[in-house]
């Protein structure tokens, strides 16, 4: 039964109609987009979803003006250190979190703006050789950083005004943590992947490292995206940027692996493979949907529970897709080009 489950299920022709283009925004001043995301914003008693775009030296906030039209509200300029990524903070309002650095993340900053007072600021949350960062519900930010001697894993509780209210150290594993993922429905649990290809679990309240479980050598450099706890098992969505193609499974983009935290044993539950003759991927997961940019410049979308590729956005005449991110709260998929064009799709 397990072998049967591991057989990839790929549609011959992925249904593109599962993605509907809602609107397009174009940052004409952007020479090279590095990331795109969404943030909840509350102003004048109204809460709405806004789009955030980032280039190396600027981060811009966009508001919906009409159903298919976006206007730029504000641009923060960050000239000293290049922006590497936008760090989503689920359910947080009026705060944009960005990671900056050269090759690796060197600092994490919070960006604030008030249209009522027309004031803006950014505050430094963390500096160091930061290897991984994740934003969690309830304005919590967890990061791992490394010195020559030791690794530090820390959770920062952010204030509404962009400060750090509290800090909690988490017990670091011996291996470098490469990614974090929140566990759906378990506020105090956090999952991480390590450079040694293990999945680790923390208790965020006590800071304890609860378990280390090996992923397996067939999937080097696995990255965790999301986890769900159900019926005593921990289901972790992993992406495999470096996994090689195999005859039985094709090239895995995402895999759902069930771990028994009690025994440390694991088994693969579902594969989501690259469409035929596609290579390379850089992925993002929301709920049970995965999206990845392929080296061809296309964006592929998977239903991770069924292991099916459900949509492919081919590269258009205007250029290749370079970014694919899920909007917060299931509001859709954001696909971005390097020239600053962003398409928002309903999924």
């Amino acid at each position: 039964a397990v072998a049967e489950q591991l057989t990839p299920v790929l549609l011959d022709g992925p249904r593109e109609e599962s993605l509907q283009l809602v609107s397009e925004l174009k940052d004409s001043s952007c020479s090279c987009a590095v990331d795109v995301g969404t943030v909840w914003w509350e102003a004048a008693g109204r809460r709405e979803l806004r789009v955030v775009t980032a280039s190396e030296s600027t981060v811009s906030l966009w508001e919906p003006l009409a159903p298919d039209c976006w206007g730029k509200v504000y641009t923060w300029h960050l000239r000293e250190v290049p922006v590497i990524q936008i760090v989503p903070l689920p359910d947080t309002c009026n705060l944009v979190c960005v990671a900056l650095g050269e090759l690796e993340i060197g600092e994490i900053r919070l960006l604030l703006h008030s249209s009522e007072t027309d004031s803006s600021k950014h505050s430094l949350v963390k500096t160091g050789n930061i290897k991984a960062v994740v934003g969690l519900k309830d304005r919590r930010l967890v990061s791992s950083s490394r010195t020559m001697q030791e690794q530090q894993v820390e959770m920062v509780l952010l204030s509404e005004t962009g400060g750090s209210k509290d800090r909690q150290s988490l017990m670091p594993p011996e291996e470098t943590v490469t990614a974090f993922a929140e566990v759906e429905g378990m506020r105090e649990a956090l999952v991480g992947t390590t450079a040694g290809n293990s999945v680790v679990v923390w208790n965020l309240k006590t800071g304890q490292l609860l378990k280390k479980m090996h992923v397996g050598y067939s999937y080097p450099a696995s990255i965790c995206h999301r986890a769900y706890s159900d019926s005593g098992l921990l289901f972790v969505v992993l992406s495999h940027p470096l996994a090689k193609k195999s005859e039985s499974c094709g090239s895995p983009a995402f895999r759902v692996v069930a771990f028994n935290p009690h025994t440390g044993q694991s088994t693969g539950v579902m594969f989501s493979c690259l469409p035929l003759s596609c290579a390379g991927r850089q992925g993002d997961v929301w709920d049970t949907a995965g999206a990845a940019v392929l080296t061809s410049g296309a964006v592929a979308v998977w239903d991770l529970l069924q292991g099916r590729c459900v949509a492919v956005l081919p590269p258009g005449p205007a250029g290749h897709w370079a970014l694919a991110r899920w909007a917060t709260s299931g509001a859709g998929l954001l696909a971005g080009r390097r020239d600053g064009t962003v398409h928002l799709y309903r999924y």
Binding site: N203, Q208, P261, H262
Partner: peptide, 23 residues
């Protein structure tokens, strides 16, 4: 997944591992 694949399953794994792990 069955118990034979993954060993005995505990619904309270998080609490049990918290009690067992070093503080």
């Amino acid at each position: 997944c069955s118990e034979s694949d993954l060993g005995p399953i505990s619904l309270n794994w998080f609490e049990e591992l918290t009690a067992e792990a070093p503080p």
